[in-house]
Design a protein around this nucleic acid. Structure first.
Lengths: 140, 140
DNA sequence: CAATAATGCTTGATTCACCCAAATAAACAA
DNA sequence: TTGTTTATTTGGGTGAATCAAGCATTATTG
């Protein structure tokens, strides 16, 4: 997503800064992935594989079609970052797991994506708590 | 973006709620666009045409390649939401403007994308100010 | 148990976003 | 004028995303 999601006519300052936040976050995420020659989607999937899991579980958690996951995992597999083994309990299913290289790349991605960490780090512990509370309330 | 951007290993609660916010925002934006049979990118471009402007200006503001804008505007034009007129001052350039139907669709999109408005609306005016200040500080 | 249905995943087809390199045309500069 | 920059488009390519259809395999159930 190179194009930002918004802003619509921002009626309040809070809405405008919310939009800024989302935009900067998204761009930072994509840039961090790009540093490792990954797409945002690939980085996302890779990041969800701390434990091995099935394709379907990934699709459900990520809220997309299973065939989308098939595609993304296939590319990660081609990059040697992930393996797709048959599930011994259900021969229809495949268990996806990161390879050691996948672990390494994932770790480097987590390091490269500094935005959230940095942003939160600009706030004092008290302020962090306030922000958390406000955003929770705003999210409903 | 059906796939979320994150979370990486979220080391703090503030980071986690930040991720939640971004995810929900992005999905809401896309859903609102989809209600009007628009992609998020199309809704975004449409929303930037309160005044007519050139392709290049759009590309620069949105931080993407000019050819990307060409494509998106072409689709909006095919939908009858936008016109592309020659710039009388510079015959290389094209000025993009919303049609009346484009105005209507854009307005309906702004109405459909309730997320930011709703989220901010859950906070008191004081809290809105606090949130604005905290996010500004976090953004650096 | 055999027929049927549901599940897990893949394939194929399509649309769109996005980027890059190259082409065109017009403005501008020397 | 000649050459250069500028605004946009075109063509080629990758990848995300969704849908429909297909294939195994598992689960039902009559």
């Amino acid at each position: 997503m190179a194009l930002p999601n918004g802003p619509v006519a921002t009626s309040s300052e809070a809405e405008a800064v919310l939009f800024d936040l989302v935009d900067v976050y998204d761009r930072a995420y994509q840039a961090a992935a790009a540093e490792l020659s990954l797409s945002a989607a690939q980085a996302c999937v890779l990041g969800r594989l701390d434990e091995r899991r099935g394709m379907g579980a990934l699709a459900e958690e990520l809220g997309c079609d299973a065939s989308n996951i098939t595609q993304i995992v296939a590319r990660l597999e081609a990059l040697g970052l992930v393996t797709r083994e048959p599930d011994p309990r259900d021969r229809r299913a495949r268990l996806v797991a990161r390879t050691p290289r996948g672990d390494d790349v994932n770790h480097r991605f987590a390091t490269a994506f500094t935005f959230a960490r940095t942003a939160v780090g600009r706030l004092s512990p008290d302020e962090q708590d306030q922000l958390t509370a406000l955003l929770r309330k705003a999210l409903g």
